[in-house]
Write a protein that binds this DNA or RNA. Sequence first.
DNA 1: ATAATGCATTGATCTATATCAATTATCTAA
DNA 2: TTAGATAATTGATATAGATCAATGCATTAT
Lengths: 189, 189
Amino acid sequence: MKSKFIDYVKSFVDVPKSEQDKLTSLIKIRRISKGEVYLLKGQSARTISFVNEGLFRYFYVNKKGNDLTKVFIPENFILLAYSSILEKRGAYYTIEALEDSEIEEIEFTKFDELCYNHPCWNSFLLKILQNALLIKEQREREFLMFNAGQRYASFLCKFPDLEGRIPQHFIASYIGITPETLSRLRKFR
Amino acid sequence: MKSKFIDYVKSFVDVPKSEQDKLTSLIKIRRISKGEVYLLKGQSARTISFVNEGLFRYFYVNKKGNDLTKVFIPENFILLAYSSILEKRGAYYTIEALEDSEIEEIEFTKFDELCYNHPCWNSFLLKILQNALLIKEQREREFLMFNAGQRYASFLCKFPDLEGRIPQHFIASYIGITPETLSRLRKFR
DNA sequence: ATAATGCATTGATCTATATCAATTATCTAA
DNA sequence: TTAGATAATTGATATAGATCAATGCATTAT
């Protein structure tokens, strides 16, 4: 079986064939339709997945009922509510599919067993955590130093392929402004 | 030699005595006085340290010359400009001591060799990265959902011991507001 | 094709926070 | 211990971005 998940892992670390086979045997292909909720706020995450095609977003809901987008996860990225797993608590956010999507999914407990039995998996985890850290650091920097227009410019720069695929109001909720403000920003570019 | 750094590592992962000794042999104790710059923006980081006593802050400088605090690192935490090391580039931020401080310092290249030769060190790295991720996720959530007053309340809650140790304008720069605004927020509590 | 729903735009305000300026308080160093 | 520097407070005003409301534009479903 051809697995994009495994190709992705191999792009970061060396994985012996035997370990690749173990992962393959655990993967379940799953389709999730546009609009479907993958993980509901308050639920504990139990899986680690790779997005073969499609697009997801993680979002918080504030007291007024507005939603704020934490991150977009498109094809060829890992779909994982890691904080929920680490803290063994319900997630702060909901994850929904923005497009009809296909993922390769594994129970996290099974993945943990892999980690326990061969170091390559922890190395992989370390790599994606390092990546996540760099991305989060940039986002923190931009919230501290950038105004709305600069954050929008940075979004376009970081996710050139998402512009057009995503309704504007989701982009607004990612950069932390209202759709009206984003619309006005766009008029002057 | 008694090392708080090693105690800290042992609080996360098992470290064989032989590995402990290797770390000990690499540690250099260093004192840094209040106001001293530990890492200047643009310089590449080369060390990983543990703060025995004292307090540091990481800060960005924007175009107007105002500084924005990324994080405070007090005693018993790791002092490390990891993004600079990972990306092999000059740091985006400056690190300065806010108090006379003592750190246990190691060349990161040496630490890397430890990692290469025994898995406990990578496990440790993984743990502190997981921690960092949780903290950064919370900060992202608060920038998205909280106003200035809520971010200040959260700061007090997360760092109860720092209030009073740190000039207010640094706290303001951490939560992303001006000192004037923080002063006004404080009047009504 | 038409209705219905959700999305984007635009205008008129409102509000949180920034900016500028002056004053007072606190710290630091000779 | 006092002078100078740095920090905090307070007031007046400015501004980025939010909110509310209306209209127009697409997309989907009937």
